[in-house]
């Protein structure tokens, strides 16, 4: 309340100090910076599309053209394995067989399995941490949180040895396993939400004879649909984009995911004249599912960064 008289004072004492012109200059500079950032952010996406719709052989001669050079869908056909070797080479491809349909399928399998497993098992654990009382609960939760601090490389090398010893190299299971049961972040994230659900609802169900698991499945999960789906979305994106781990354990063609395939595709293109159109078509195929997801659920992802803070 003390602010109000002083504020009123300021207005009456110095009315001429309303610097309208200066503010609008500052404002337009601010907008300029914002629009510049937007341009820099969005232009590479356009350029990927423009290149992917070009003929690699025509790229050099029209490198400054903002439109596709010699428009063709050949690059997409090439990386999806739909073009013949002759057609591919005619448009600047290397002629090596690439099949991004297969890699797309592998990425779908890996990301979906990881997401379903991780979110479900972490939700179970989060429920026990948030809602049940049992000896050792806080100590175990503290241990989980501590694991957030461990940099991945520290556990990656021994995990590779473990997966190799289990004979799971170049299998879906080997790629999926380390993230299938938990990540400390997911447990932490869901626990925060479960803490906020009123106890009375649970208790009413239990008086009606429902067991803990039924309460979890029929009450807790549906009531937390928003945070659970947000976490699922974040987990899906993280898993889809992961490169290091699948590169170590899943290089074989049959289980190769998109990110790994892109790296290999890039290293296979001839040094002198890379197949840029093919490469950009492949990167777009790898990025597109996430961008489509984003187009539909963008608001949820943007908002989740507000409250989750870390991911």
């Amino acid at each position: 309340m003390a602010v109000l008289p002083a504020a009123a004072d300021a207005v009456t004492v110095r009315p001429r100090r309303t610097p309208r012109t200066r503010i609008s200059l500052g404002r337009s500079l601010a907008w300029l910076f914002m629009l510049g950032s937007l341009l820099v952010t969005l232009f590479p996406f356009y350029w990927m599309l423009r290149t992917a719709l070009s003929n690699t052989r025509a790229l050099a001669s029209s490198s400054e053209s903002m439109l596709p050079a010699d428009f063709t869908l050949g690059a997409f056909e090439r990386v999806l394995g739909l073009a013949t070797t002759a057609e591919a080479i005619a448009q600047g491809g290397s002629g090596a067989s690439v099949n991004f349909w297969l890699y797309l399928k592998n990425s779908l399998i890996v990301a979906t399995t990881t997401t379903v497993g991780q979110v479900f098992f972490c939700a179970m654990a989060a429920y026990a941490f948030a809602r049940l009382t049992w000896p050792g609960r806080d100590q175990l939760f503290f241990a989980f949180i501590t694991a957030l601090m461990i940099p991945p490389i520290f556990t990656t090398l021994p995990n590779f040895v473990l997966i190799r010893d289990l004979g799971l190299l170049d299998t879906y299971l080997g790629i999926v396993l380390p993230g299938l049961l938990m990540t400390p972040f997911s447990v932490f994230f869901l626990r925060q939400f479960f803490l906020g659900i009123p106890r009375e609802i649970e208790e009413a169900a239990m008086i009606d004879g429902a067991g803990r698991f039924r309460v979890f499945l029929t009450i807790i999960l549906p009531m937390s649909a928003a945070p659970v789906s947000t976490l699922a979305l974040l987990t899906y994106i993280t898993s889809w984009n992961d490169y290091f781990w699948p590169l170590l354990v899943g290089k074989a063609e049959s289980v190769r995911v998109l990110t790994v395939a892109l790296g290999i595709f890039r290293s296979q293109t001839p040094q002198g004249s890379p197949d840029w159109a093919g490469l950009m078509a492949a990167t777009l195929i790898a990025a597109l599912p996430i961008l489509v997801l984003y187009a539909f659920l963008g608001r949820r992802i943007v908002n989740s960064i507000g409250f989750s803070g870390i991911k």
Partner: peptide, 9 residues
């Protein structure tokens, strides 16, 4: 409830 996550951990 915590068994799967703890095994993973």
């Amino acid at each position: 409830f915590v068994a799967p996550a703890t095994i993973g951990f």
